[in-house]
Design a protein around this nucleic acid. Structure first.
Lengths: 156, 156
DNA sequence: GTGGATATACTCGGATATTGACTGTCCGAGTAATATCGG
DNA sequence: CCGATATTACTCGGACAGTCAATATCCGAGTATATCCAC
């Protein structure tokens, strides 16, 4: 899986903790975790295209959450970064070679169907969890983190 | 996801339909779906290392199922080809940069935990389905396939 | 001193290199079948 | 004709290139701020 998913999730939580009063630049979000600034910017752009973040161009610009965390699921973020395709893609090799059933259209591939069920279970679990849930759990496990983050980003 | 997973699953089902009386070469299995023979051989070797297939070296050699389909899960095959690592890997970027909590070991990452739950749901679904289940469904959807396959592989 | 126009600095956005992993290929080790030769 | 041995053909197994997408970077478009100047 794309590494940008992890960066995007952390950045979304950081943006929520910072607050929405002003936009935060990609460079600043990247510096907090020592990530490549330009590449993180690329991932954030994907979130903007997906409607998860909104961007402000120009001086004093940056990114902010487009909607509250309880309306953003893990599935939303993963789809924004990774794309809509599922991991297992059936290339229908049944239709190649001497085993091909010439003429009539082939029935549903049982293998693709089985793999699709697993993929569906994965997506269900991702869609069931919102970033608000993740945030709540993170604050329970590390109560001091929100203040520490807010304070660091407040320093110009 | 690795394309070899699809090839491996189809090959396992084909081996089951052919029967276990004699080993089948990688070249023959590849020819049936017009796959690159040497590359399919590589994937089949992974299945051998995982104990799913057994291989017979030398002349008149080939591959055969090491155990019956009802004792092979989709999870087994995916793990054999893709490796044991889960799709989302947490690189613990919390521990990098100014946001790092110096000194004490960091608590469990809530993001990794949430992604891990989805991964677990995916694996559960893969482990719940055996190749015997997939075979049964395939035969229900295409009743003529088993005989057709057996006959083609019988021709030398 | 004040208002407006200009210059400036800063940030997003997309176009452009680079790297690593998946994909694909080739040759050697090992075995069964075959051919050869002697009895 | 029969048996033992050497040869051959064939297949797995791991080592070796090729290719594409993920990774990383750079430069231009656009905007708010600061500066400068005229009044």
């Amino acid at each position: 899986m794309n590494e940008g998913v992890e960066w995007a999730l952390h950045s979304c939580l950081n943006l929520a903790w910072i607050g929405e009063e002003r936009a935060v630049t990609a460079a600043r979000l990247a510096a907090y975790h020592e990530l490549p600034p330009a590449y993180l910017n690329k991932q954030l752009q994907s979130l903007v295209r997906a409607g998860i973040l909104s961007s402000v161009p120009g001086c004093q610009g940056g990114f902010r959450l487009a909607r509250s965390l309880d309306r953003i699921t893990l599935m939303d973020v993963v789809t924004a970064i990774e794309g809509p395709d599922e991991a297992f893609r059936c290339t229908e090799i049944r239709g190649q070679g001497p085993g091909a059933t010439t003429g009539r259209p082939t029935a549903e591939c049982a293998i693709a169907d089985a793999m699709g069920r697993a993929d569906l279970a994965w997506r269900r679990e991702l869609a069931a969890q919102t970033l608000a849930d993740v945030r709540a759990r993170a604050e329970r496990q590390a109560p001091g983190a929100p203040d520490r983050i807010r304070r660091w980003f407040a320093d110009l």
